[in-house]
């Protein structure tokens, strides 16, 4: 079974690289990683430059010099925009990758040709899941390389051991978050009868999780959800938000990812309260396990007699 699984995974990866939409979203995601690093560096150096000239002026006028605000922030917060790009473009790219991994077989009409090969029932499903995992890890790995290079190039932003550990965990969390949306794309690509519906299902789930749940649990206006700092403001102390977070917290994946990434990139506001009964890390792990199960069941139940989606 492992040989067939490996074959399916390698073949699927080779095919997905030829898809223009996937290539476009991958390039866009990588460009945003670079932009994130640049914006973080630019904002910090601007503040630092202003501080230096203010400090020079204060010294010349014999006034006390306040501490440099740049030194009060973690160098990791340089990457705070990354959490937004992951939850927006990264997740969308993963959905498209997951969908394409199945859609290219269905649209190619080769599903029955694969179905008559001598391989175990799980080989196809596992091959697709492994291909998705490898592609998401590759994407996140490339983003991590850019971030590491940024820290190597800029001497004023040095990470200690804890910083490197947090950075690694941040990219691990990002891979988990993107992966679970990719798995939804995979499941939907296999389950839905129509191509349009199979893309709409995971995109609708993503929109709900990213923009609607945060509004209900944290009183965040949808556009504010794009701002990594505003998105972490505590909700009003009303019974509605208390109960909404209790109920929706365990499925509010974008909230869980934002809190976790803010904690790992060290820009979580002090005293931020999590009212959900399930911790953000548990929420993401549970959602990933559920998505893996959903993807495998959908792929196993896929009608192997048919090729294409319904018109």
């Amino acid at each position: 079974m492992f040989r067939s699984t490996g074959l399916i995974a390698r073949h699927s990866m080779a095919l997905v690289f030829r898809e223009r939409t996937v290539s476009f979203l991958t390039v866009l995601f990588m460009a945003l990683v670079l932009v994130s690093a640049y914006l973080g560096w630019s904002a910090t150096t601007t503040v630092n430059a202003i501080y230096q000239s203010a400090a020079a002026f204060l010294t010349s006028t014999h006034q006390p010099i306040p501490p440099n605000p740049v030194l009060n922030t973690s160098p990791l917060s340089l990457l705070r925009n990354m959490s937004t790009y992951v939850s927006l473009i990264g997740s969308l790219a993963s959905i498209v990758i997951g969908f394409q991994l199945v859609a290219m077989d269905r649209k190619g009409g080769v599903v029955p040709l694969i179905g008559v090969r001598p391989m175990a029932g799980n080989a196809y499903a596992l091959g697709k899941v492994f291909a998705l995992v490898a592609l998401v890890l590759g994407l996140v790995g490339a983003a991590a390389c850019v971030s590491v290079m940024t820290f190597q190039i800029l001497p004023e932003f040095r990470l200690d051991g804890t910083g490197w550990r947090h950075l690694t965990l941040f990219f691990g969390t990002s891979a988990l978050y993107m992966g679970l949306f990719g798995l939804m794309g995979l499941a939907s690509g296999a389950y839905a009868k129509s191509e349009t519906v199979s893309l709409l299902i995971p995109v609708t789930l993503w929109l709900t999780v990213t923009f609607i749940f945060p509004q209900l649990t944290s009183n965040i206006h949808p556009t504010a959800a794009l701002n990594p700092v505003k998105a972490l403001v505590d909700p009003p102390h009303s019974s509605f938000f208390t109960y909404a977070e209790l109920v929706l917290g365990p499925v509010s994946l974008a909230d869980a990812y934002k809190v976790l990434s803010a904690r790992l990139l060290e820009f979580l506001p002090p005293g931020h309260v999590i009212r959900s009964v399930v911790s953000p890390a548990t929420t993401l792990v549970m959602a990933t396990v559920f998505s893996i199960g959903l993807a495998i069941v959908s792929l196993r139940k896929m009608d192997m007699t048919k090729g294409d989606y319904d018109a």
Partner: peptide, 13 residues
């Protein structure tokens, strides 16, 4: 066995 379905389609790319 070998199987050729009606309207054979393969990976076009």
């Amino acid at each position: 066995i070998g199987y050729v379905p009606e309207n054979v389609r393969l990976y076009d790319t």
